[in-house]
Computed example of a mutant assay.
Amino acid sequence: MFSPKKLIAENKGFILFMFGMVLVRSALADFYLVPSSSMYPTLVEGDRVICNRLAYDVKLPFTDVILSHVADPARGDIVTFSSPEDGTRLVKRLIAVPGDVVEMHDEQLVINGVPSDYQEAFDNPANHLTPRREYQGKQLVYQETLGTKQHGIIVMPERQAMRSFGPVTVPAGQYLMLGDNRDNSKDSRYIGFVKRELITGRVNRLLYSLDGDNYYLPRLERIAAKT
């Protein structure tokens, strides 16, 4: 006869191990599969990123309840968060912090009256562009400077997208997120600001990456790569 108590007793070590793994992923560090092209050229489809869940806050496991602050999210950070629209886990770049006045004019960001600097990048690998199966038009790659931080972005002049907005003031306790693939990202332009408690961690490094367009072979150059 089936006995739940016997089953638990015989598998106690495995059950404790699995519970510990779930607890670690909820409270300390998590792994996140990048499912779309919204963060090209920085993150590509098939990347598995490591998310530091203690980068900003200590939370009650399995909840969004903040127990204590560790550090403040900063402009330019890549973060994971739960979408305020439907709870979907997303990964985007944090562009503006509480109190910032943000606007965008024809793709150019202006934060607190200071325009961001852009330099066209000519040496970006072709496999870091939006896949041709998804978009066949022109893609331009720029290095965007936010304060002292630089990162790549992609713009698609032939695609319909929200290229201008604002000015808007970021409310207290909330943040503005954008995808690096600016014309192919559902971000704060569409889902609104993101509350701090919805941020689930910071991404600084990849674990590994599998190329779905090449029989899911590993991209060796992206193993343990920094973002």
Score class of each variant (00 low, 15 high):
Ser36Glu: 03
Gly20Tyr: 02
Lys6Glu: 14
Ser38Thr: 12
Val44Ala: 06
Val22Phe: 12
Glu85Ile: 07
Lys5His: 10
Lys5Phe: 10
Ala29Val: 14
Asp47Ile: 07
Leu23Gln: 03
Phe62Asp: 08
Asp47Thr: 03
Ser38Lys: 04
Lys12Arg: 14
Val22Trp: 00
Ala74Asp: 09
Ser26Glu: 14
Ala29Arg: 06
Arg75Asn: 11
Gly87Arg: 06
Ile78Gly: 07
Ser82Phe: 11
Met21Ser: 09
Gly13Tyr: 05
Asp30His: 08
Phe14His: 05
Asp64Cys: 04
Val49Thr: 03
Asp64Met: 09
Lys5Leu: 11
Arg75Tyr: 06
Gly76Trp: 09
Glu45Ala: 09
Thr42Cys: 03
Arg89Asn: 14
Ser37His: 07
Leu33Pro: 08
Val79Ser: 05
Pro35Asp: 05
Ser68Tyr: 11
Arg25Tyr: 01
Arg48Phe: 13
Lys5Gly: 03
Lys6Val: 11
Thr88Met: 11
Ala74Glu: 14
Val65Arg: 12
Asp72Lys: 12
Val44Cys: 09
Leu43Asn: 04
Ala71His: 11
Arg75Thr: 10
Val58Asn: 06
Gly20Thr: 09
Pro4Phe: 14
Ala74Asn: 10
Gly46Asn: 08
Val34His: 07
Ala74Val: 07
Asp64Gln: 15
Gly87Cys: 04
Thr42Phe: 01
Thr88Glu: 15
Thr42Met: 04
Ile8Pro: 02
Glu85Gly: 11
Glu85Asn: 12
Val65Trp: 12
Leu16Tyr: 09
Ser83Cys: 02
Phe81Ala: 00
Cys51Asp: 11
Val70Gln: 08
Thr80Tyr: 06
Pro41Tyr: 06
Asp30Asn: 14
Arg25Val: 04
Ala9Gly: 08
Pro41Cys: 07
Thr88Ser: 13
Ala9Met: 09
Asp57Arg: 02
Arg53Ser: 05
